[in-house]
Design a protein around this nucleic acid. Sequence first.
DNA 1: TTAGATACATACACGCATGTTTGTAAATCG
DNA 2: CGATTTACAAACATGCGTGTATGTATCTAA
Lengths: 216, 216
Amino acid sequence: MVRRTKEQALATRELLLDTAQQVFLEKGVARATLDDIARAAKVTRGAIYWHFRNKAELFAAMCDRVSLPMQAMLDPLMRETGPDPLGRLKRTTIMVLQLAAEDPRARDVFEIMFFKCDAGNPEIASVLSAEADNKRQCIKELKDSLDAAIAAGQLPAALDSGLAAEALNAFVAGLLQNWLARRDFDLAAQAPVLVDMLFQGFAGLTQTKRPPPSLA
Amino acid sequence: MVRRTKEQALATRELLLDTAQQVFLEKGVARATLDDIARAAKVTRGAIYWHFRNKAELFAAMCDRVSLPMQAMLDPLMRETGPDPLGRLKRTTIMVLQLAAEDPRARDVFEIMFFKCDAGNPEIASVLSAEADNKRQCIKELKDSLDAAIAAGQLPAALDSGLAAEALNAFVAGLLQNWLARRDFDLAAQAPVLVDMLFQGFAGLTQTKRPPPSLA
DNA sequence: TTAGATACATACACGCATGTTTGTAAATCG
DNA sequence: CGATTTACAAACATGCGTGTATGTATCTAA
């Protein structure tokens, strides 16, 4: 058939990613056929095999389209140094939850990664384990932020920052997972209160001086 | 071949469940072939098709073998009424984490349900959605417990018990998920401290009277 | 004791998803 | 303006997993 111009080709690539996302969400990654995706996108499998080597690479590209921008968005926020490390960490945490809940693409991809794909296919497993490495790194940065907050007197020195980092990450992951599975509460709206609950726990018995209340 | 007695048949059924669990863990539910399982169990697919209608039913039976006993264990604990509802809730929460971390069967099945199966197969999805209903019910019971703790003066009345129940459930789920994915900290040992973090947050600014410190 | 049910093993048929190969028209480049 | 590459479509080949049907030796009950 008609050969497309470069921009048109890029457009069909995006179309394929969009369509794959949609089909993966409906049928799950394992049962979603490349032909399912091709037909939904009104092309043939030839188009898919032109842009991607196989289903796993298509899946990986779909994930990257969410995780890479998100990483790029979070990185500067985490490295930013200032007088209110605890407030920054809290606001960033809330932002992540709200972004994941409100951005349709991020929301759907997270739902796919949580519920609609298994680690059976080794190439898919490698994508997931890369994501796990991300998490590991993320937890380290969380610990650094918490240490900074301790140093600034915003959290008690008795707090185990490593454990607290695990707790915070688990809390966010769990909230996202539960909300995606049931959607019976307003995650974006309640995120500040929810995050506050755990941060209150970090502060613990030993109440220390507080920064001015953040409006987030 | 030789026909087995009833007990022998039940034994092969258990063997099939054990083996399926193992194979599912290695290859994922979708890529695990019934023949894989049969060969690992040193039988043929005929044995599997005799005891189960298909892979989905085998999967469901494997899940039930963990979730049913666990439910039976938790139910009386949650219904139990006493003078220290907060302590009971906290101890139960810790118990769930420790059980999931230390019981090999529960641990593996949770890992399968979290990471090694997708909701593509509709019959498998129904098992997972049944699990989601369980969670819904669980959250209601958590809210009841929290309300009881508020009534007993162990938590501030200002606490949104519904949200706190969501938070607690998400926290537990997230901890389990993160620990299963990376296994880089001692969940069973740290469970008390971790759970305390969130419960401290529930107590919040308004410190109220406390029950005698639980030894858990 | 024997007739039937049980607990599998074995064999068969089938669709279906994948990967690859070939075809082709238009775009791009020299 | 021609040659080559691009961006797919179409056709081909193949394996693989499932479900089912059939065989069969033992257990069980009357």
